[in-house]
Design a protein around this nucleic acid. Structure first.
Ligand SMILES: [Mn+2]
Ligand SMILES: [Mn+2]
Ligand SMILES: [Zn+2]
Ligand SMILES: [Zn+2]
Lengths: 141, 141
DNA sequence: ATCTCAGTTTAGATTTAGTCTAAGCGCCGA
DNA sequence: TCGGCGCTTAGACTAAATCTAAACTGAGAT
């Protein structure tokens, strides 16, 4: 499944006994057409242009529902900032269950080759985030 | 520079005409000993155990100052959540100046080899974040 | 046509992370 | 002893996100 499509969502709602309302339609249409990474507030602004008086709660409800269904993803972590006393260039492993962030030393990740990136973007650094289950969360099955 | 060390900070403060106070010492000592990625609130809690009545403002001031000096780094992005209608497995380029997040298709990043990761951690997915200057911000020099 | 009810939307209250402010403190040097 | 500068503090403030309770909607059931 590549991109959010209203039609897919439309049929999905029915099979779950949910309703496709005008507000939801507007939110999904906007996301479908967006080729960047909008914030909840940007969604609210844009949807209100076409369908005034849509509430913040509805936008968040819909985004969270779409997220649960895997129709949109969050970019990067939600939540508050974490500080890293290790300023060496290194990477991270994030547990999808308990959220713990562990260091992954630089040499654990082999060379990362970047091919065919548009000339226009100048990459200065990169970081790799591994995701999965940490040792603890695996034990607890 | 690998890890935050109080001694280095201590000499640095002097050369900048700044003062090493007990509060700052406590914050830095805690960070120095931390082998995870504490939040500002965790720092506040821990510091208050040893040095009660340290204020939130002082913790944030110190963390932001250490960040500016490159003595700690933020893990992942600050700020609010962005939603991605593209659920295909792909990567991102983040402009360090304007903060814009652009897609980097999966095939742009060559195979990423993960060597010698502790057996205990099970990696399910990974993502690469490239950082630098976007086309626009380069033009504006 | 009217009733009912589950699901939805809404405005506004609440929570949480983080910043800002203004008043007071403490050290150092004149 | 005094003045001043930088530091700390409590609390006000802001912004992102969640929660709540009341009103709304529309698809059956009567
Ligand atoms: Mn780290
Ligand atoms: Mn993306
Ligand atoms: Zn875990
Ligand atoms: Zn830019």
């Amino acid at each position: 499944m590549a991109r959010l499509q209203r039609q897919i969502v439309e049929t999905m709602t029915q099979s779950r006994g949910l309703k496709m309302t005008p507000q939801r339609r507007a939110i999904i249409d906007y996301l479908q057409s967006a080729h960047d990474h909008p914030t909840a507030d940007e969604v609210l602004q844009m949807v209100n242009r076409k369908f005034p008086m849509t509430s913040r709660a509805t936008v968040y409800n819909t985004l969270n529902w779409l997220k649960q269904e895997g129709m949109v993803k969050e970019v990067f972590e939600a939540g508050c900032v974490r500080y890293d006393p290790n300023t060496e260039h290194h990477h991270h492993f994030v547990c999808r269950k308990c959220g713990k962030v562990e260091d992954v030393e630089r040499n654990v990740i082999g060379k990362v080759k970047i091919c065919s990136l548009p000339e226009s973007q100048k990459v200065e650094v990169f970081e790799v985030t591994l995701r999965g289950l940490c040792a603890n969360c695996q034990k607890k099955r």
